[in-house]
Design a protein around this nucleic acid. Structure first.
Lengths: 138, 138
DNA sequence: GCTGGCGTTGACGCCGGGGTGAAGGTCTAC
DNA sequence: GTAGACCTTCACCCCGGCGTCAACGCCAGC
């Protein structure tokens, strides 16, 4: 199988495949004409890469999985190094969620405060706050 | 007040202030010598910018707040446009947290699955799983 | 009048990750 | 024979929010 077919079957581009090879992630054998030659196994490796990429893993993070498959293990995550990547990614995701949630609460607090201040002014200057929704603003 | 003093008092750099001006965010009057001239009000605007930046707001997001202050309102978030930015940011943060949490659960599931597979193999090939912790792995 | 420190403008660098684009040549398939 | 797929190498891009010169102007103190 040549590069175009592999790219098409994996839903990626020939450019990406050459890029992976340049990173040492998916080396290819060569035919006599210099063309890259791939087999079904390479398609498996490539699919593993793309699944992880869809999870937001960096290319380097996919390397242990690919090497695990290449070493003959049944799954890309059958090796300790892959599990470590999972764990590191989990920790990273947890940290991001925690940070974002903190900011979210800060912003929510600011919004609530600002809305309360606005309503207090509206109530003082414009009559009954209860009727606020009745007045057409536009 | 000249640019260096303002930068220092706001804990930023002259380069950042010139950049804000180039973006039209914090225009400065000029003295006869061409030097930028700032006052205490500019310091308030600048502090507003920096608070929002620390929340992770982009520069453009700070514009409504700055213009609100410049229009004479007591707070940068005393204007509807600022509240809209808060709301948009909240939605954005919620979406990010949701997306990250989804991925987190996917990865956690993969990790659990992979660990279970590993343990099943260890149990089948290495004897009693109960004693696994007793065997020195290294 | 000279040095040093502030100021001015403009242009380019960077950071990172995952590629893409173009140019110029070779090979294959119909 | 010609279109299309393939090869290589080098450069570029995207994003924001500045940093880093370069080359100059302005002003105070000595």
């Amino acid at each position: 199988m040549r590069i175009g077919e592999l790219a098409q079957r994996a839903g990626t581009t020939t450019r990406a495949l050459r890029y992976y090879e340049s990173r040492g992630l998916l080396p290819a054998r060569r035919g006599g004409n210099g063309y890259r030659a791939y087999d079904e196994e390479d398609l498996r490796l490539l699919r593993q890469i793309r699944v992880l990429q869809d999870f937001g893993f960096g290319l380097e993070d996919t390397r242990p999985f690919v090497e695990c498959l290449r070493a003959g293990h049944p799954e890309g995550d059958s090796c300790p190094a892959s599990l470590e990547v999972y764990r590191a990614k989990l920790a990273e995701l947890d940290a991001m969620v925690a940070r974002l949630s903190e900011v979210r609460e800060e912003v929510a607090g600011q919004l609530a405060r600002a809305e309360a201040a606005r309503d207090a002014l509206a109530g003082a200057g414009g009559g009954e706050p209860r009727c606020e929704l009745v007045r057409a603003e536009e």
